[in-house]
Design a protein around this nucleic acid. Structure first.
Length: 264
DNA sequence: AACGGCTGCAACCGCGATGAC
DNA sequence: CGTCATCGCGGTTGCAGCCGT
């Protein structure tokens, strides 16, 4: 079962890194750059396996790491991203400059989980503790699915104030970015985003982004080019209390539905 | 001072994804 | 196309330090 070990374990050190090992690793990477983790330990004169070197560099030694406490803004961003991406720590970390996936994962498990629980929120589902889980109460909002292919070109507006809905009530547990709308979730975009059905036409970058102070992140080029599918894209907002998620049909170049999510 | 439980974090492990051959 | 090597991710573990008794 399983694969063979990544290195000769009997000849490698394990456990905490010494200062000297750190210095060797830093020195080597400064000279030769990152990569080739397999051969790095030998070349750098380290009795470590490549995986261990990579982890040490990425999680601790990289010069661009921002050590220290998380800010409230980072907390909120992590919570929002987790509600959308789930335990995709590397994806979350990609949106927090200077933070690593491991750091965020640890922080989530030690601080944020507790914080959410104390607020009466289930950290996994982001719904109120004790609420019925698993069902996407959707609403038979009839209007939601009907008009997704009207092309109201270059229009991007929130329909009403009521379209701003609490995050924990609405976000399905497992929206994965890039998830095929016909794929594992089996949810159409309208089912995923039943509350609002904003019609918008986009170019990339979507021109209204500037007007609305949104900027796109996590665009998936290969999906854009290769497949007709709906992708769920997260927009990180410069507005303090809102982020936006929408379903986008890359082939037809318009979004199918859209919704706004408040932060917690 | 000694002990034990708890906490936070660094590091490890297993496995899926990806690319080279 | 299949196999193998490597990378990268997420879950888990181990341990040092803290705190209460």
């Amino acid at each position: 079962m399983g694969r063979s070990p990544c290195c000769e374990k009997q000849h490698t050190n394990k456990g905490a890194w010494t200062k000297e090992e750190d210095e060797r690793l830093i020195h080597y990477i400064k000279l030769h750059g990152e990569g080739c983790w397999r051969s790095l330990p030998k070349a750098a004169g380290l009795l470590r396996c490549g995986k261990s070197c990579r982890l040490r560099w990425i999680n601790y030694l990289r010069p661009d790491l921002k050590r220290g406490n998380f800010t409230e803004e980072e907390d909120d961003l992590i919570i929002n991203l987790h509600s959308l991406l789930g335990n995709k720590w590397s994806s979350i970390a990609a949106r927090l400059p200077g933070r690593t996936d491991n750091e965020i994962k640890n922080y989530w498990n030690t601080h944020i989980k507790r914080k959410l629980c104390s607020r009466g929120i289930d950290p996994q589902t982001h719904r109120p503790l004790g609420s019925v889980s698993g069902t996407n109460k959707t609403s038979n909002n009839s209007s939601s699915s009907s008009n997704s292919n009207n092309s109201n070109v270059n229009r991007f507006e929130l329909e009403t104030k009521e379209s701003v809905v609490p995050l924990m009530q609405q976000v399905p547990a497992n929206i994965d970015n890039g998830e095929d709308s016909n794929g594992c979730s089996g949810l159409s975009s309208e089912e995923v985003f039943p509350q609002i059905n904003l019609e918008l036409s986009i170019g990339i970058p979507f021109p209204s982004c500037q007007r609305s102070q949104f900027s796109p992140v996590n665009l998936n080029q290969s999906q854009k080019q290769q497949q007709q599918r709906v992708s769920y894209q997260l927009f990180q907002s410069t507005m303090p209390d809102v982020c936006l998620c929408y379903g986008l049909d890359f082939q037809k170049k318009h979004a199918c539905s859209c919704r706004v999510i408040t932060t917690l």
